[in-house]
């Protein structure tokens, strides 16, 4: 009778347990793709659920994934700002001449996904985050700009450069 049972504030407010059970995979994979490595992803994921626990009473029931995504990106941004103070990120340029070749023509979808995951890891942190928020999460440039706190024009130019770099990586030797 004293188990941690489900309890609802209102029909639209899920319990922490429900959120954890249903969304842990989503949060972790979003963190993993943005961070690019399991250690940082784990830190982000743990912090996200601490915040979910702490701020669940402020959740207004207006889209759980949107809320979790916002928390995850906020934690991610806090982490990269801290890391960039320690080791500033180098932005790598890209040229059209580096994207010759026919990447993906012989790859099936799963193979393309795996190679793309590896190629994403070669991007700079912010570029990768923007690419994930667009390519996986399907957000608009304005939404990405708001989440990452960068200008819309920067989102657009970084996504373009990110794609060219990804093509270049996929075209190159594995």
């Amino acid at each position: 009778m004293t188990s941690v049972v489900s309890h609802k504030d209102s029909p639209t407010t899920p319990t922490f347990d429900e959120i954890y059970q249903e969304q842990a995979r989503y949060v972790y994979n979003l963190a993993l793709r943005m961070a690019g490595n399991p250690a940082d992803a784990d830190d982000i994921y743990q912090e996200v659920f601490l915040r979910v626990h702490r701020f669940l009473n402020t959740y207004r029931g207006d889209g759980l994934k949107t809320w979790l995504r916002r928390i995850t990106v906020n934690v991610f941004c806090t982490q990269i700002r801290k890391q960039q103070r320690e080791t500033p990120e180098e932005e790598v340029g890209s040229e059209l001449s580096t994207v010759e070749g026919e990447p993906g023509t012989l790859l099936d979808a799963q193979e393309l996904g795996e190679k793309l995951a590896a190629a994403l890891n070669s991007l700079g942190t912010v570029m990768r985050a923007a690419m994930i928020l667009r390519g996986v999460e399907g957000l608009s440039y304005q939404e990405i700009a708001d989440l990452l706190e960068i200008p819309v024009g920067t989102v657009r130019s970084r996504l373009s450069r990110a794609r060219l770099q990804l093509l270049s990586r996929l075209a190159g030797p594995a």
């Binding site: 990447p103 979808a109 393309l112 793309l116 994403l120 390519g135 093509l167």
Partner: peptide, 8 residues
């Protein structure tokens, strides 16, 4: 390239 994002 875009199709790869659905298969990460």
């Amino acid at each position: 390239l875009e199709t790869g994002f659905a298969h990460l």
